[in-house]
């Protein structure tokens, strides 16, 4: 845990959660692990803020939940992506990529170009 971690950008947690559950149903802790695993522990996620985000996403119909059994035989609430959520993830990802391109373009510009 001594590796340098970055704080999440505002509004990106939702997208990461959608991405995480798009690969298969997960419970809350599983989502946290999945994001850390994909990001190779480079992102810092406030654990307490994960659940309000999950509730909000479910409230908006992008993910759905049901109670199931976890790997170590415990009852756990599993989240999965809904069809609406899949579309949302797609548009969000596209928007993110476009934004990243634009920002990168701006930052890479040299004095001569301006």
């Amino acid at each position: 845990m001594d590796k340098k971690q970055m704080e999440l950008l505002q509004g990106t947690l939702d997208m990461l959660i959608l991405k995480a559950v798009s690969l298969g149903p997960l419970h809350g802790y599983g989502i946290l692990l999945r994001i850390q695993q994909i990001s190779k522990d480079r992102l810092e996620i406030q654990q307490g803020s994960l659940y309000p985000a999950l509730y909000r996403l479910e409230h908006q119909g992008w993910i759905s939940s049901e109670w199931g059994e976890s790997e170590n035989k415990r009852k756990a609430k599993y989240y999965r992506l809904t069809a609406a959520g899949r579309r949302k993830l797609q548009t969000e990802a596209e928007k993110w990529n476009r934004m990243a391109d634009v920002i990168a373009g701006i930052l890479q510009s040299t004095p001569e170009e301006v």
Binding site: H27, G28, Y29, L32, Q47, L50, Y51, E58, H59, Q60, G61, W67, S70, R74, K75, A76, K77
Partner: peptide, 28 residues
Amino acid sequence: WSRLRSWLRAALRRSRMERDMDAELRLH
């Protein structure tokens, strides 16, 4: 519509929703 449904579910089954939420967070 789905928001209203989720809200109604939460509002009408309030105690169950509270129990579930508590269990979920503790499990984490």
